[in-house]
Write a protein that binds this DNA or RNA. Structure first.
Lengths: 346, 346
DNA sequence: CTGTTAGCGCTTTCAA
DNA sequence: TTGAAAGCGCTAACAG
């Protein structure tokens, strides 16, 4: 309620005066790269700064240097464990590099995504990381690319997560391969009558997983007719609804593959509500290996993506700080994780 | 691999020149509050900006204006659904106000938290929101307060989430009351032999929930002796380990209350591993109502906190944009949610 | 090695 | 209304 006198923050100028040195010397002592400052001066400056509670104004520093220490991360939904895990990785790697992460959410909306990128450019971030799944053939797709290209043209770096984004650096996730392996594994376990709760048709990630799964089945001589594929939202409720829709057709089903774990959780619950027994008379598999799926019943079979590592990689890829002799960075391995939701079948 | 020519971003200067007006006019057309600009000029500027793909350099703007559009959010762990939900709320409200959110994680480490706050001050954010649970009597506690006070003294706003943080604005969560109500409700359902998997002793939130729960039991004439309280980490694994420890004592237990949902998930899994039947021969309850607990088996009884709303409120509280006639903002209601993990007993 | 002096990109008096 | 010019806090030549 009380309006404080609100004196403005200590400036470098104040510190310099307090220490009895010039602005330049103060600056050099506090940040300058080469230690070209007399130790006794340096100390006096540091003490003065300490005494005055000074912190460098990063904005001013950024303006003067023409480069910032900001990383912008775009996610579809930060409350979704897939994205929050990736974010954790990005933040971790970023703070190790002394970078600050700003997060914006796009809600899986191409228009909003474009708008957000534009807005974020105002921050002149060093890096923009896009983790939201790309929608194929979106009307905004091209403008987004243009925006990002021009961002790169002015010295920024962009990194995508998931499927290849052409001229931009990408942390590739082998959606197709992972799904293919999963399909093989499930056929190996004796499943034959599959259904897929697929994501929205225009979501690349979703589409790739569906394709890979279908390919894997085909290899094993198992067919996946279109009527056994239901497209639904990339969310828990999407999985739920999709499953109800599937069950309504009365088709006999051995195993339901949801193209991500969040959807798979919805699948399990819908199956149960319909009187089926997930992990019993019907198998369920997902994709991602978010933490939750270990704890639901039955524990979900899935394709594991090292989500935090993905985030870390994206950052390092963009900052060029990728360690070791890895040009183009080796693709992250996905890994099949069989759990109770897909027991061997008679 | 190719080092692009990296021309620098378009500046306001470029726009002004392109539009054939002065810097000042360009600035006013693009941002100025009062529309004191000739419409035809304004249009020319806007067009030029569009043509050149200009975006205001927020940093420079911040330096010139002496105020930023940044909100800093500190969380213990962004991958924890409790925090990611809050973050979602903060981001939502912030972007509605045209503010950008930067997130930093502290990993429940007081020292790191202090350090992070110091670092974040360099961004001169409008607001700092601290969502990590406060540890009581931490050696850093006082220095943190000092840091934050001085931040406020220089015009910043800080908001805490959870328990009262004295001079700072706080979105209060009624940990004690919620736990008390839960205790009552459980006694009402016929439970008598309680055990609590409590959090770390120095975590205020954890302690408050424990106290409230004990009070609620006491009111009903049910005792909660110290040996029935196990302190453990505020994580899933903490819940798991705490439960094993509890079971090892051989004490007969009706119901296990974990002071947060993440821990409760660990409790359920530990119980099951030990051959117990959560929701059957032993009840389980948590706190927070994170999305997951609806999907595990049995669905968890818990105390619901409107997490996203909490985040939103924190932001509005700090920016002073709190709508309506709510001085001090009404406390957020927690709500008991009974689910399958606590059926009526006997 | 230190201090002086231009900027960085933008806003905001202050005259015109 | 518009433009010129003086900053905002900091860095980076540039002399000294």
């Amino acid at each position: 309620m009380s309006a404080p006198a609100s004196k403005s923050p200590t400036t470098l100028h104040d510190v310099a005066r307090e220490a009895g040195v010039s602005l330049a010397t103060a600056s050099r002592s506090l940040n300058g790269s080469a230690r070209k400052v007399n130790e006794s001066y340096r100390l006096r400056v540091l003490e003065a700064a300490e005494r005055l509670g000074y912190t460098t104004n990063l904005f001013a520093q950024a303006v003067a240097k023409g480069s910032t220490t900001t990383v912008a991360l775009l996610v579809a939904d930060i409350a979704d464990p897939y994205f929050s895990s990736i974010a954790a990785g990005v933040i971790d790697a970023a703070s190790a590099e002394g970078l600050v992460v700003t997060i914006a959410v796009t809600g899986r909306d191409g228009g909003r995504e474009l708008e957000t990128v534009r807005a974020l450019r105002g921050q002149r971030p060093r890096v923009i990381i896009l983790a939201g799944s790309r929608t194929a053939g979106s009307p905004f797709e091209e403008r987004l690319r243009a925006e990002l290209s021009s961002f790169e043209a002015t010295g920024g770096k962009v990194a995508f997560i998931s499927q290849d984004a052409a001229p931009f650096a990408t942390v590739l996730l082998d959606n197709r391969g992972g799904a293919r392996d999963l399909a093989r594994g499930l056929v190996g376990r004796g499943y034959r009558r599959f259904a897929v709760i697929a994501g929205p048709q225009d979501l690349r990630t979703a589409q790739e997983r569906l394709d890979g799964f279908r390919d894997g089945l085909a290899e094993q001589g198992v067919d996946l007719p279109p009527e056994r594929i239901v497209h639904a939202d990339f969310t828990r409720d999407g999985g739920h609804r999709g499953t109800r829709e599937l069950l309504a057709t009365g088709m006999p089903v051995d195993l339901v593959f949801a193209v991500n774990d969040v959807m798979a959780v919805g699948v399990v619950s819908a199956l149960r509500e319909a009187g089926r027994d997930p992990g019993g008379d019907v198998g369920v598999a997902g994709y991602d290996d978010i933490p939750t799926v270990r704890d639901i019943t039955p524990a979900l079979t899935t394709v594991r993506i090292p989500l935090e590592e993905v985030g870390r990689r994206a950052l390092l890829l963009a900052t060029g700080a990728a360690t070791g002799a890895d040009p183009g960075s080796p693709p992250l391995r996905t890994e099949l994780v069989f759990r109770d939701s897909t027991p061997h079948r008679g």
